[in-house]
């Protein structure tokens, strides 16, 4: 993610009151993970897959933490088993920050399937989401996603793409 966008993501997490972050770093949000790790506002618990990360976020919420899971949208597929079991089954909120690989503008062929699956999968899991393509929208989107998550006791998501990750001026 562009550095000023990553800093906006951190501001959003802080202002949302998130204090427990897990996830698996990816190419776009690697710097977000680094900023989280360096920030004392967050208890940072990296994982080796997004399913275990979601489980830890859910367990932390049961202990009073406000949890966020940071991952590529491919990780949604891995986490979906535990989102379904835990959140659809018992009602546990976790805020999801997902790189939107495969969005319009994608440069990597391997990102295309992630873009095809992500939104239908979120809908299948009854997870409301915002797609953020402008840096100035990132902080409020994270705060609103967290707010909804806590209100409905179910995850809410932010898919991040566009000007947050590409400094291309829209050139092809």
């Amino acid at each position: 993610m562009l550095q000023h966008a990553a800093e906006e993501a951190i501001r959003g997490l802080e202002e949302a009151g998130i204090d427990f972050v897990s996830g698996l770093p990816d190419g776009w949000q690697r710097n977000v993970h680094e900023l989280v790790e360096q920030n004392d506002s967050f208890q940072y618990v990296p994982a080796c897959n997004e399913g275990a990360a979601f489980s830890m976020c859910a367990g932390a919420w049961l202990g009073g933490k406000k949890s966020a899971l940071i991952m590529e949208n491919s990780g949604l597929r891995v986490a979906s088993e535990y989102i379904a079991r835990i959140s659809l089954g018992t009602g546990v909120p976790v805020t999801l920050l997902c790189s939107y690989r495969g969005d319009v503008g994608e440069t990597e062929h391997w990102g295309v399937p992630h873009g095809i699956v992500a939104e239908p999968l979120l809908q299948a899991l009854r997870i409301k989401y915002l797609v953020v393509r402008h840096v100035e929208d990132l902080c409020p989107a994270i705060k609103r996603a967290k707010r909804l998550s806590e209100t409905q006791l179910h995850p809410a998501a932010v898919l991040i793409s566009g000007d947050c990750v590409w400094d291309d001026g829209g050139e092809s």
């Binding site: 427990f20 897990s22 208890q43 618990v45 399913g51 275990a52 979601f54 489980s55 830890m56 976020c57 859910a58 367990g59 932390a60 919420w61 049961l62 202990g63 009073g64 933490k65 949890s67 088993e81 535990y82 079991r85 835990i86 089954g89 018992t90």
Partner: peptide, 17 residues
């Protein structure tokens, strides 16, 4: 609350919290 594949993960999160 734990189910197949997530019980220890949830316990780790709870213990860390």
């Amino acid at each position: 609350l734990g189910q197949m594949g997530d019980v220890i993960g949830m316990a780790v999160g709870l213990a860390l919290a």
